[in-house]
Amino acid sequence: MPVLPVSRGPLSAALLAALSGPAPGLDDAEALRDVAVPSPADPFADEDLQLALYCAYELHYRGLDGVDAAWEWSPALLALRGRMEAVFEAGLRALVPDVGPAPSAEDVDLAIREIAAEDAPGLSQYLQRSATIDQYREVLVQRSAYQLKEADPHSWAMPRLYGAPKAALVEIQADEYGGGRPERMHARLFADTMEALGLDSDYGAYLDRIPARALSTVNLMSFFGLHRRWRGAIIGHLALFESTSSIPNGRYAAGLRRLGRDDEAAVAFFDEHVEADAVHENLATVDMAGGLIRQDPSLAGDVLFGARCLAELEGAWTGEVLAAFEAGRSSLLHPLERTPVAA
């Protein structure tokens, strides 16, 4: 369980201070009323807001070390989270004001593919061709905010679906979770890769180093996943995620091999995603997203909205990481210690 992180501003300071104490009673929805939530121009780059939201959501996953479990359903905390989510959602609507014409069940795979085709290959190409092993380690640290709980945010959607799209989602998720073999669980493979590159694979170990833009990509999934009204968006998110995975992961693996890391522990995570996501892409776009729209055509716009929001936040994150690397800077809030150079 992650330890409480260090605050990044008044909002996260107030939230983390509250979480260190007992949760207020169920009849107290006002306890955090005086905590101000900022409305920055770019909420996804706001360290204070994204960290506070990430911690509020983490209570629904594996929790935070030393935090009273009753906070998860505290009306006071949910009220504060709701105010943060309003800022988050307004930011999304500003980024994606219009998704265009809603696709039919038969065409949604083409619509998702169109968004996937706009995916800038910048970061994966950089890793393949130029990155150092220390830059790889930074990317793993950034990604650990999601990858150590890979697939979990999309699992929130399961009880909200029925029939064909549910069957497709479960088929994908079963594979994500290792098909019954814990050692093949994607989150486990990611932990193996972290360890192979000399990193701490403990859940949440690097939270204090992970910048807002990386946290925002995880908060996006939690936001869509935890609200039933956004079930179309979480499905669209997963459909695009699976459609933009095989080729970049192939590049990540190629870059590690370029750096002499062909060992199973280092590359298995990426190799597995090349193959797995080549399967998942079809199930996710045609069977899952198409199946959902067939049942409820009114969700088609939300499916595209979820996909577009992923493309925007992911693009902003990769752009920031790449800019840091190209400038010779660390992409983290606090750089890692460099790996000792082997003699």
């Binding site: 593919r113 996937a116 085709a117 995975s245 095989s246 080729i247 192939g250 090349v274 193959e275 996501d277 080549a278 399967v279 892409e281």
Partner: peptide
């Protein structure tokens, strides 16, 4: 694909 007979997504490229 680079991992034939399995798909690796190359059809998109």
């Amino acid at each position: 694909s680079r991992i034939r007979p399995f798909c690796d997504g190359s059809h998109k490229l």
